[in-house]
C-alpha cells in the first residue's frame, strides 16, 4: 500500500506538469489563431509563483478555505480512480477501488465545493455564478451518462479497468469502432467539461466579472489553477479509456490525451460562445438523441 501511495504521488506530479505545459501550448495555439505572438508557454509556472509570492491574503472563514481544496480534490480524485496506463503498476493509481459511478460523482464534487466556498466569501453574485455552472454541468452529464450507460451495457461492466481490458488487442476492438454512436454522443457531451468555448461562459472571467472565483487569490488561486491543469487532462484520460482503447505506455497516453484535448481546442477556436441557456438547450438536443440511439443500438442490435 505504501508504494502505491508513492506511485500515486509520482503520477499526479508528472500529470500536473504535463497539464501545465499543455495549457500553455493551448494558449499559444489560441494566440496564433488570433495572429498574435502569444504568452510564453511556461507562463503558468510564473503565475503560480507570483500567486504564492503575495505578501498578504484575505480570509473569509472555513468554507472559503475548503472551496478550492474541494475543487482540487475533484480533479485529483477523478484522476486517481482511473487506470492512466493499462497494465502499468506506477500509473494504475487506485483504479481497482472505483468504478464509473464514482468517477461521475467526482465530476460534480469540484463545482459543489466551489458553491460552498463562494457563498462564504459574501460576494453577492456568487450564487448566480455557481448556479449557472451547475446548470450547465447537469446538462452536460445527461448525454454523457447516456454514452456511459451504452458502454456499460455493451461490456456488461461498470469497472473502468474491465472496459479498458475488453478493448485491448487491436484497433478494431476500440469502442470507437464497436459502438460509434456512443463515442459520438460522449465526444459531443465532453466538450462542455473542458472549460473552453463555446461552453465557457460559466467561468469566462474577462466577460463576466462575477461568480465563484472572484474572491480567490494567492494560495487559493494556486489550487484553482492546478485544478485547471489536471481536470481537463483527467477528463481526457477518462475519454481515452472509454472510447479509444486506453494506453499501454506514457507516450501513448500523452498522444491520445493530446488529441482528445485538441478536439476541444479545434472546436473552441472555431466557434463563438453560447450563452448558458443556449448551451443547455444544445446538450439536451443532438448529443442526447445520439446517446439514446446508442443505448437502443447496444440493446437490440449488438448483443
Amino acid at each position: 500500500m505504501g508504494e502505491k501511495i508513492l506511485y500515486a504521488f509520482i503520477s499526479v506530479f508528472l500529470t500536473i506538469n504535463y497539464g501545465f505545459l499543455l495549457n500553455g501550448l493551448i494558449r499559444k495555439i489560441y494566440a496564433r489563431v488570433g495572429r498574435r505572438h502569444g504568452i510564453p508557454f511556461y507562463q503558468m509556472y510564473i503565475d503560480l509563483l507570483k500567486s504564492l509570492a503575495l505578501r498578504t491574503n484575505i480570509r473569509h472563514g472555513v468554507m472559503f478555505y475548503l472551496g478550492p481544496v474541494f475543487r482540487f480534490t475533484g480533479g485529483i480524485g477523478l484522476f486517481l480512480f482511473m487506470p492512466v496506463i493499462f497494465g502499468s503498476e506506477l500509473f494504475a493509481n487506485f483504479s481497482f477501488s472505483g468504478d464509473l459511478l464514482l468517477l461521475l460523482s467526482f465530476q460534480f464534487f469540484g463545482t459543489l465545493g466551489m458553491a460552498l466556498g463562494a457563498s462564504e466569501s459574501g460576494h453577492p453574485n456568487s450564487a448566480i455564478g455557481v448556479t449557472r455552472g451547475l446548470a450547465q454541468m447537469t446538462a452536460v452529464e445527461v448525454p454523457f451518462v447516456m454514452a456511459l450507460m451504452a458502454i456499460a451495457v455493451q461490456y456488461q461492466s461498470i469497472s473502468l479497468h474491465e472496459i479498458v481490458a475488453a478493448q485491448q488487442g487491436g484497433i478494431t476492438n476500440w469502442t470507437l469502432f464497436t459502438n460509434p454512436l456512443a463515442v459520438v454522443a460522449g465526444m459531443l457531451a465532453v466538450l462542455g467539461s473542458f472549460m473552453r468555448p463555446p461552453f465557457d461562459v460559466v467561468l469566462a472571467p474577462q466577460e463576466i466579472p462575477i461568480g465563484p472565483p472572484t474572491e480567490y487569490h494567492s494560495n487559493y488561486m494556486v489550487y484553482l489553477q492546478s485544478n485547471r491543469a489536471i481536470y481537463p487532462l483527467a477528463k481526457s484520460i477518462l475519454i481515452m479509456n472509454l472510447f479509444f482503447g486506453g494506453a499501454t505506455s506514457f507516450g501513448e497516453m500523452m498522444l491520445k490525451t493530446f488529441l482528445v484535448i485538441m478536439w476541444s481546442v479545434f472546436v473552441g477556436v472555431s466557434f463563438p460562445r453560447f450563452r448558458v441557456e443556449q448551451s443547455i438547450r444544445w446538450f439536451l438536443g443532438i448529443p442526447l438523441i445520439i446517446g439514446v440511439l446508442a443505448i437502443v443500438y447496444v440493446q437490440f442490435f449488438l448483443n
Partner: peptide
C-alpha cells in the same frame, strides 16, 4: 490585447477582480 501590440508577450494578463 490585439495582434498589433499583443501585450501578452510580456506576461501581461487582464483580471476581472481586484483580489487577483
Amino acid at each position: 490585447m490585439t495582434p498589433r501590440f499583443d501585450a501578452y508577450r510580456y506576461g501581461i494578463q487582464w483580471r476581472p477582480t481586484p483580489r487577483q
